[in-house]
Design a protein around this nucleic acid. Structure first.
Lengths: 101, 101
DNA sequence: CAGTATCCAGACCGATACTG
DNA sequence: CAGTATCGGTCTGGATACTG
């Protein structure tokens, strides 16, 4: 994505720092699994961006992807173990956020 | 910065998602306090961006700023309590990061 | 329904010059 | 030394149309 990165925080920045990533992780953590439902649940996100995030988070090992060979096609995403840990950490930051304000 | 934000993750994205923010927080957490030293310690960051980050993190209540009325001017930054908590959380994510890869 | 391709406006970053 | 202003290139996100 960025090309001039080299710090050890690269991955953190690319995952959490990407707009909508956190919302997507949180929503999936809340039980929403299918892209269509996610798109409806996360107000404001576009198809393209949702797809990009799902792909990236899957690539980074934070999401599992299950594609069912049906018509119409059905795909379900879920948190990996690492994904769940990240969600927990994100929730901590949320609380921190409230303390700040 | 962004203008079309409205999710509850806005702040998290704006703080952690900003390039270099995490590095700056971490470096200050490691004891580096003055802008000049930070600029040298954080390889690749520019004056302008460092200033922006310091300002934003200060505005967000993550950093304390101490300006001394001396010549030449001296300024020192330190983590607020919230800043320290955030640094701890970031370190957790670092560990998670290692598990992912 | 899931996912991709395209187009465009604007945001961010980087480098640098400059002020107090 | 700390901090701001400017400028240019690049990348991202948003909207939409489209494919399987």
């Amino acid at each position: 994505m960025k090309k001039t990165e080299r710090s050890s925080y690269e991955k953190l920045e690319q995952v959490v720092g990407c707009k909508w990533s956190v919302s997507v992780l949180h929503e999936i953590g809340s039980g929403t699994k299918r892209p269509g439902a996610l798109e409806r649940a996360i107000e404001g996100i576009s198809t393209k961006v949702l797809s990009e995030r799902l792909r990236k988070l899957t690539d980074y090992g934070l999401l599992n992807k299950n594609k069912f060979p049906e018509v119409p096609p059905r795909t379900e995403y879920s948190l990996t173990q690492a994904g769940e840990q990240l969600v927990k950490i994100i929730e901590q930051i949320q609380q921190l956020d409230q303390e700040i304000n």
